[in-house]
Amino acid sequence: MADSIAASSPDTAPIVAEDNPAAPPPPGRQEVRVSLLPVASLLVLVLILGLWQFLPTALHVPKYIIPQLSDLVREMGRMWQQENLLMHSVSTATMACLGFALGALLGAVFGYLLGLSPLWEKVLSPYILALQIAPKVAFAPLFIMWFGYNAWPKLIVTILVVFFPIMVNILQAMRTVDRDLINLARAYNMSGRQIFWKIRFPASIPSLMAGLRIGATLAVIGVTVGELMGGEIGLGFLITYGEGQANTAMVFDAIFVLTLIGIAMYWVVAAIETRALHYIPKAHH
C-alpha cells in the first residue's frame, strides 16, 4: 500500500525512483497550456472590465442601477478624500482579524478539549450540531440589543461565525487519528500529555489549517453583517450609508474593499498552511 502511494505521485522526490521508476509526464502541449493559463485569466478580467465600462451606457442602464467602471474609480477617490475610507477599512480589517483570531483560538481550544473527552462530545454533539446549523449572523440584532451600538456585537458575531468550522474540523481530526500511532506511543510508555503533543496535535494540523482557511473568509462576512446592522464605522456602515444616498458606486466600492480584505486574510492563512504542511507531498493540479 505504501508503495502504491509513492508510485501514484511521481513528483514526490527523485529518491523514490530507486524503487519506483515512475516515468515523468511527457513534456509538450500540456505544459504550454499550463503556462498560458494566467494570460487567459488576465484576458477574462480585461474583458469583464471593458464590458462594465461600456455595456451599461450602451444598454441605457441608469447610473444608480449599475455605474460605469470609471464612476467606480472616481467614487473610490472621493470616498478616500471625503468619507475617510482608510479609517473605515482599517476598522473593518482590524475587527475581522481580531474576531478571526479569537474565534479560531476558542474553536481550537474547544475542539481539542472535546476531542480528548469522547463522553462530553457525545453528550454535547446534538447541541453542537444545532448551533452549527443556526445562522450565526442572525444573532447580530440580539447582540446589539444587549451591548448597544459599539464594537462588541460585530466582534461576537465574527467570533461565532469563525468558531464552528474550526471546532468541528479539529473534532473530526481528533476522532480519526490513527489508532496504531496512539498504540505505538503507548507501547513506548508515553503519557497522555506526550501523546497529545507528539501525535494528536500534529496529526490535526491539516484539519486545523482547512478550518482556518474557511474561518478567514467567514470572518469578513461576520464583521460586515455586524456593521450593516448599526454603528457608524466600518465598510458595512459605508454600504448602508451609500444605500441611503442612492450612491450605487459607493456600495460597489465598499464591497470591493471588503473582498480585498478577505482575500488578504485568506492568502496569509494559505501561506502559513504551505509552510506548516511542507511534509505533505503536493498533488498534481
Partner: peptide, 9 residues
C-alpha cells in the same frame, strides 16, 4: 528527509 520522500522499503 521526510517519510514521503522515501520508498516503501
Amino acid at each position: 528527509r521526510y517519510p514521503y520522500q522515501l520508498s516503501g522499503g
